[in-house]
Amino acid sequence: MNQPRYKIVFDGQLMPETTLETVKDNLARLFKSDAARIDSLFSGTPVALKRDLEEHEANQYLNALQKAGANVRKELDQSASLSLVPTEEESEAEPVDSARMNCPKCGHEQAKASECSACGIIIEKYLARQAQLAEAAPAQVADATGASPYAPPQANVAEALPEYSELKVFSVNGRIGRVRYLGWTMAMLLCSLPLMALFAGASAISGTLGGLLLGIAVIAMIVISVFIGVQRLHDMGWSGWLWLLNFVPVVGSVFALLMLIIPGTQGVNRYGPPPPPNSTGVKVLAWLFLLVPIAGIVAAIALPAYQGYLG
């Protein structure tokens, strides 16, 4: 007896706690497809994303797509189980009611006929076409002019996504959380201290040289701030261009505070997998960053009081 074959069906429903845009971005990345074809999958009409799968293959597709946020389901693929040549067991079995049949494409049950009354296919031609596709090499992606908007994307979606994103300080790609954002900012400030000492020494020799070194240090700090700020926004699911709001008076101060408060999105978002867990060093640097303004406030209060006491 032939082993049962399965198909993966999607009708536009999302997994809990996911957003439509995030799921579309994940599917576009998995299928390596354009946005127009991905949008067509959310019309509400059930679409078979993949057919003629063994059970373990169907489970792989099911897990990968559900992790991407698509609420897909596994169903028996009736068309893949059809054969024009009866098996030995089927030949010996007792005949069933031959007056009824199921459409090999949509599964509609109807009186035996050459054409499906639900989807309108010519059944014999459809079965012949399915046999050709099964024997042929993996299908090439159809050109844009002839592609059906409901054609399933041709890609191996069973490929597992990385659990965590790769950390890169000098990049606008990737994601970092609130603690790592504070830690990396503190590390940048600590690295700037030797540069300030170098600037002071160069200024004693030449004012021009000191000014040049100071300009280079300031530009370097701004560039690194952009890199880590954009990655923090990506972790929140926001566009990196919003970092420019830091230059807007009043709004910039509020926005910088939001970058420290708002948590990152859970799981994969449009900018990739979540960042890895924070190391001990990152946590220590983050606490040091928080202590700097606290120490400044205490000093601002204590010094005038101490000076008044001495006076």
Rank of each mutant, 00 (worst) to 15 (best):
Q3T: 07
R5S: 04
Y6L: 05
Y6Q: 08
V9G: 01
F10I: 10
F10D: 00
D11P: 07
Q13G: 10
P16G: 12
L20I: 08
E21A: 09
A28C: 02
R29T: 15
L30C: 04
A35I: 15
A35W: 13
R37A: 09
F42I: 14
P46H: 01
A48N: 09
K50D: 05
R51T: 15
L53H: 06
L53C: 12
L53P: 08
A58I: 10
A58H: 00
Q60G: 12
A64I: 08
Q66E: 13
K67Q: 14
G69M: 12
N71D: 15
K74D: 03
K74V: 12
L82C: 06
A93C: 03
P95S: 14
S98G: 13
A99N: 10
C106N: 04
C106V: 00
C106G: 03
A111G: 11
K112F: 13
S114N: 09
S117Q: 15
A118N: 15
G120T: 01
I122R: 06
I122K: 06
I122W: 06
Y126V: 05
L127K: 01
R129G: 03
R129K: 11
Q130C: 05
Q130Y: 00
E135W: 01
A136C: 09
V141A: 10
S148A: 12
Q154N: 09
Q154S: 10
A158F: 04
P162R: 14
P162F: 12
P162S: 13
V172P: 06
N173Y: 07
I176G: 00
R178E: 05
V179L: 09
W184Y: 07
A187H: 08
L189M: 14
S192N: 14
P194H: 09
L198T: 14
L198Y: 01
L198D: 02
F199M: 12
G201T: 13
S203C: 02
S203G: 05
A204R: 08
G210L: 05
I222C: 06
I222S: 03
V226C: 04
R232D: 11
R232S: 14
W241M: 11
L242N: 05
L245P: 04
P249M: 01
G252K: 04
S253Y: 13
A256T: 09
L257S: 04
P263A: 02
Q266I: 12
Q266D: 12
Q266N: 11
G267W: 06
V268T: 13
R270W: 11
Y271F: 14
P275T: 13
N278E: 14
N278S: 14
G281F: 01
G281T: 14
V282F: 01
W287A: 12
L290K: 05
I294F: 04
I294M: 07
I294E: 01
I301D: 04
A305E: 06
Q307H: 05
G308R: 07
G308C: 04
Y309K: 02
